[in-house]
Write a protein that binds this DNA or RNA. Sequence first.
DNA 1: GTGAAAGCGCTAACAG
DNA 2: CTGTTAGCGCTTTCAC
Lengths: 383, 383
Amino acid sequence: MEGAIDSSQSRPPVKPQGAVQLQRASQPLHPRQGRRPVKLSDVAAVAGVAPMTVSRVLNAPERVTAATAQRVRAAIEQLGYVPNLVAGGLSSRRTRMVAAIVPTMAHPMFAELVQNFTDVLRAQGYEVMLSLSGYDTMSEAALVRAVLSRRPDALLLAGARHDAPTRQMLADAAIPVVEVFDVARRPIDMLVGVDHAAVGTAVAAYFRAKGHSLFAVFAASDTRARLRGEAFAQAARRGGGTVLAETVIPAPSTIAAGRTALRALLPVLTQAVLTQAGAPSGTQAGPGANGPAVALFCSSDLVAFGALAEARANGVAVPERLAVCGFGDFELSAASEPPFTTVSVEGARIGRHAATFLLDRLDGVEDVRRVQVPFRIVERASS
Amino acid sequence: MEGAIDSSQSRPPVKPQGAVQLQRASQPLHPRQGRRPVKLSDVAAVAGVAPMTVSRVLNAPERVTAATAQRVRAAIEQLGYVPNLVAGGLSSRRTRMVAAIVPTMAHPMFAELVQNFTDVLRAQGYEVMLSLSGYDTMSEAALVRAVLSRRPDALLLAGARHDAPTRQMLADAAIPVVEVFDVARRPIDMLVGVDHAAVGTAVAAYFRAKGHSLFAVFAASDTRARLRGEAFAQAARRGGGTVLAETVIPAPSTIAAGRTALRALLPVLTQAVLTQAGAPSGTQAGPGANGPAVALFCSSDLVAFGALAEARANGVAVPERLAVCGFGDFELSAASEPPFTTVSVEGARIGRHAATFLLDRLDGVEDVRRVQVPFRIVERASS
DNA sequence: GTGAAAGCGCTAACAG
DNA sequence: CTGTTAGCGCTTTCAC
């Protein structure tokens, strides 16, 4: 089913052309003597002002006469001057850089979060330095250390479980820190949280309201997914339900993992359905009716998508025999066949909140702020 | 079909607790007098050596006696010293930072590219500073300028169409630059290319070999997607085929856009099928047979996925009446129903190549290197 | 193998 | 509004 036609363009590499290439790049628009990089004082000399004035034109234009600024800008243009923020950062102790440590960008929510975080900060003149912790082999402490050695003005950290050395470093750094996408009993500083346990509980409640009493959960092995999964299972049991399976999926979540997990569940699933109700397959388990369907909560939409695909392949009717709820509200969830129910958390909102919190603190507002971002269950045909 | 149950946890924000919070973070493991940040000379003083020696322990341990190094490391540990790479960078003119400018991380190929690029570089002591250009309102020149002002030691740039000011800045920066994922008639420096026109041509050839003579293409409005789409259409016509539609999709590509595009194509599609062959729907258009099916090339797997979903919803048989090929080899393409044919380019490979090129140059190898990365058509049930 | 002196390119702080 | 002076914290370079 998956032949591969190789139309490779494996041409041999173009012949090396020597590094001279770089030097003779397009006709220098503004020929400069020698290779010496242009610096602030060069601009100052050309403009006939003091270096400090050039600095002001760049960082506080309102403190300079329009005429002077004009001359300086002309010189900047003429020389092709690119400011050195490394030097500026050392001198001012402000790098105008905010670090963000998130596990992955593969998850649309994080992608959205980072995107919005970046947008808000960039508008205020800050650049975002992104670090992905998810794939990394480094310990979190090592990562945080590496990040802090670049002296960011502030830091966003996804997750809120941090070991003592990490917390110590963060405290010593004495910069605003915002933890996001998690709950923390004792946040390091500011927090834009998502109550993952509440998500699991809410999904269980949702399924119970629909009349389900048989449950299953596929949860990735990361902290927050587990939290959701465990809360789901616990709430399901507390409500008198039976949890047929709590499958742990190795992170990161994939569609393939969802398929596999469902395949393993297939016998249990079928048997349970028969045992409990004996209803002919295809019977509608309407909301409120104590139907025979198993209610499955997946810790990621990717997993849910895979599970649905496998269910379809095996003739398991959805939602009649298997009801599914995912997490993340990926675009996928609406386009899937059938579209499936999922939990939506607005990454955009988290990102904007987090950025605003940090900016306020950088502006001198001393409040330590914390919010809990809401989530909602988006109901679709799978449940 | 899409009710939304709101189980918001819109609790009021936890009450502000004052910024003191940060200061009294977990019992300081290593109490330090005052708040003054620890610097190299502090470590030196504690270890009883010159600052330079501490620097050596950190950057060239082999040039220091084991015993001395031991004492220094103890002092570092004791003081919780975090080196200041901003100062180090200014002094040494090496920031140990490599910048990467890519349009998006939403595309798995770029995600993979960046991931591998980062891995290879990190192993050699470089950090990657990532900038997403795709969403950005800034001009490319402005973005590059902002990036260069942080003085990266090297730069990766996705795409190879750059305006004069950008090229000038890059040349002036005098750092290794690698352009990726594009062809360039005149690369700035090094190149790890993908021949997008060749992709379009190859897909057209593939469809023709399967006996198709009716074609359509959905291409996003970004440069490279267009290149693929145009080459596809051109090759299709050159082969004597008819191109029923060349739909431009506003970037970024989404599943929804794919659905919409197919919906618009529906009348044309149906009519064309009837006109050309009059074959009863459902007839198998086998490879080599001059079947009635329309062969659709989508510039992204997301678009292809959407198109397939819409086709299914409208009872268009795949591949009997509509053959589909995507681009990107997203995980989606294999999990879709039916799984669909797509073009695979290994982002991982591009990332590793690019990193290696840059590292070599940073190590003093002067060769300007260029490679073309191969692609392949992964055949699945949709064609 | 270790140390002392002299900046890296910019901006804070204070004058004028 | 503009200029001067003195570093920011580290590494280069050269002594010892």
